[in-house]
Every structure is written in C-alpha cells, then in structure tokens.
Write a protein that binds this DNA or RNA. Sequence first.
DNA 1: CTTGGAATAT
DNA 2: AATATTCCAA
Length: 540
Amino acid sequence: MVCTANDLQGWKDFPKGLRVLLLEGDNNSASEIRTKLESMDYNVSIFYNVNEALSGISSSPKGFHVAVVEVSTSCPDGGFKFLENAKDLPTIMTSNIHCLNTMMKCIALGAVEFLTKPLSEDKLKNIWQHVVHKAFNADKSAMSEPQKPVKESVESMSIDLDKVSKFSDNEQEHSAASDKYPAPSTPQLKQVARLVDDGDCHEQTKCSIEKESGEHDGSECKFVETSCENLNTENSLQPTKPLIKEEEDSSKGESSVSTNPQSKNLLDNADGNASPNERSGPKDSCENRANRKKMKVDWTSDLHKKFVKAVEQLGIDQAIPSRILELMKVDGLTRHNVASHLQKYRMHKRQMLHADEDRKWPNQRDPMQRNYCMQRPIMAYPPYHSNHTYPPAPIYPMWGQPGSQIAGVPIWAPPPPGYPLWQQPTENWHWKPYPPGVHVDAWGNPMLPPPQTPCFPYTQNIIGLQNAKATDYRFGMPHNSFEHYPAEEVVDKVVKEAINKPWLPLPIGLKPPSMDSVMAELTKEGIPFSKGKGSKSKPC
DNA sequence: CTTGGAATAT
DNA sequence: AATATTCCAA
C-alpha cells in the first residue's frame, strides 16, 4: 500500500496506528519486535512465512503501510521473495546477517532500509519515515502538473509535528545540533546526500544537512527533501563496511576536522565515487576513508557466536586472533578486532572465576586460602591434542607456599591466559552461548557431564596431574625438569590432603564424596593413602 | 616484518 | 563497559 501525501494529511496522530507488516521466522524475535513497535503505537501484524505475508498483502491491499521483513540466515530467499513481490510496500529488511552483499541485495531489490539485528526501539521508531517518503514520491510521480514543492505540501499538511516528534524527538535535536545518526533508521536524505552529492562535504553529511535544513525551515522537513530514491547500489562500498559502524564523534576534534572542506580527500569515500577521477587515487581514498573515522565493530550476539564457534573449532591451543579471524570469515573484521574481543572474552572468564569463588566460599579471603582456590584448577587444563609446538603447561602446584617460585613462575600466579579455567557457569557472560543448565568450559564449549562415576574431585585432581605429566611427555621435555617432579609427588599429597582436609573447598559444582567412596576409588586407582590424620602436606 | 597479548586510551 | 590503539616481546 502506498500512502499519498493526501492520505497523510488527514491522519490524526500520525504515525499512531500505522500498520506494520512484520515478517519474522522466529517466534520470540517476532513478539519482541511487536512489543517494541506496539509500544510506539504502531499496529503490528506478524507473519511467519513469506507466502502468508504476501497473501496477507494481496487480500487486503490497503492493509499495511510498511513492512519489516527478516532475512533469515536459514532462508534468506524468503525475505527477497517478499521484496520482489511487495514492491509497493515500503519494506525494511532486518537481519542477523551483517554482510554487505546481503544488504546490497536487499536494497537493490527495493528495500528502503536494512536494519541489523538486534532491533532496538531506536532503530524501529522512525520507520514511519519511509511511509512518508513513499507517500511523497507517489504523489510526485502521480502528479503530472508541475510538482508542488514538497516542502509546501508538508507545510500544508495537518500532521501535527509535535506529536510526530515524540517518535523522533532525538532525531530532531540531532539534526538541529549534532547529527549523530544513532539509529540506522535515518532519514534517507543522508544516504542520498552521500550518494548523490559530489560536491564538498561528502562525509560530513552533518554539515550539508544542517546547512540545508537550516536554510529551510527546520529539521522536520529534511526527510521530505529527499526526493531521490535511486540508491546507486553499484557504487558498492568495499566489503569492509557491513558490521562496522562509524562511531559518533560529535564532540571530538576529529569531527571538526571532518567539516573542513580542505580535507575533502580524506573525507571522500567509496560512497561518493560519483566522480572518481577527481580523487587522488581510489585506493587512497578508500584507505583514508578507513582511517578517517574510527570504526567500531559491533559485537552482536551473532557475531559473538561466530567468534565462539571459531574458538571452539580451533581448540584452546590454536585460538589465536588470526585463526579465529580466518574461521569467522567476516568481512571487514580485523585481527585487532578479534584480538580485542578475545581479550575481553578471556577477561570475563577470569572475572567469573573469581566471582564464582567468592560466591561459593565467601569466607576464604586470606591470600593463602585464595591461593588454594586458585591453584585448584590445575586439573582443569585438559590434555593437549596438538602437534603444534607449544610450550609445556607450567605446573601450578596446588599447595605450594605463597611466594615460592618454580622456574620463575610465582606459584600464586593465575593460570596463564589462554588456559581454560575451571569449569564455569556462564551466566555472567552476557551472550550466554548456552542455556543455563549446560555447563561450559572457559571457552564456551559445552562440557560433557562428568563421568558416570559419582563425582570424585580428587580423582580428577589426580587425572589432571597425570595429564600434566603426559603433557610433559608429549612435548618431549626432559623429565628431570621441574615439570616432572610435582606430578607424582603431588599426586600423593593431593590425595592425602583431600582425605585429611575434607573441609577444604572442592572444585566448583562438585560435592564432597563420602569417605568410603574416596577410599574405594583410591584403592581402585591403586593409589596408596594413609589412614587417619596424616601429616600435613609439605609445601612443594 | 608480523603476531599475540597486555596495557592503555577513547 | 566495550572497543580501539599502543606497546612490547617472540
């Protein structure tokens, strides 16, 4: 359905009641979006598949003013099909796919906008603009008479801009003062200005828009000034853009620099290649463009999933930025981005470890005890399956004296980054790669439930230590090195300690076994143990 | 010269 | 708080 300006004129409380067709594959996502839209007084109809949606349109041609359509990863063609068959309806595409090609395709097929998920209210609130935009276009193309200046028709409209403004209050301020274009649902003028304007001030649409809207009568008009809809999709930006957004830099010096016409070359970008010959060099302009503004990667949950998946796939010993980057196959993402994210990822894990320990054993605050806790994860280092050269895992004796050092490594030092910490719940890692019940390791890998045998942490200790030994062996390290001796000796101590100090904390998520089962297990393992109150374990 | 990682800056 | 940038050692 295409509204005309006339339609809009009679519309009280626009855009209240504007009918939105929502095409979503996912139920939850759909209702989430609906809620948001409805909170803004949009009128939402959800469809879960293309055909329904299309027949919904055809059965009530005037039923909708605008469509919000998902391009799903599983079935992107659905969204495209909709686009192709609903040309009359201003259609906003939404997707988790942050890929330039997809966006391009959508726009090329006639989408008025592409919104990356998740959809915030900010992104959604201004979708009415497309209706208005279309309305004026429709009027224009329908009118054979000399076109009534759009501005005029706006002024003559009875739309109460104050009411409208509550849907776009921020936008007005932005356009008046500093346009940060926070929500992707930006007036198309911006895009058009960028694409079409080959004069000065390309990038600083801020500047040109301000000028224009200033010359006319205010920001409320700016969107109607965009009569041009021929988004020139061929001037494809290089594929480094999709998930990278330009950071708002309203108050920084850089922004003032960018308004300087002198810096035109720096400002020019692939968007405005209308006259490429003017550029000092295409490559140059691209690079400059990339440098010109800080790009920020938006680590959406989707992107993060990719990240985690890559990390999983690589395994801990190879989860390094460059490889992760390769596996993620995300255009525009740099090694630095990944490294930075990896850093954060690891830090979260570490923090969680501490938080968790504090939660479980809040009274164990003295360094000694903490140290004890810290050391426990020793057995959490899984055996390595890599043939790659890799430094042998340093052994962290569990009950060493604080301050003593082994081969220069302070024994209270936390495990080196990159090592998995103890099995952790992930609730604090806000992407929640796995549902609450599922235990995951420090890298987000789902962990198999513990062996069928009843939990037996000390045995795990032992296993861990043996693994440490095995690691030692695998890497062909000389066995007289320090890595060797803790393994066997400590095993014994671990066992004694475990038996003699049942009050000491256990690894997270494990419950103390009964003494009997401890004995039984030890016997089974062929590990000697001493009964009664044995001597306290000596520091390693 | 490139890389990963920690520290630091924004 | 999240992300980028810088610094430094391999």
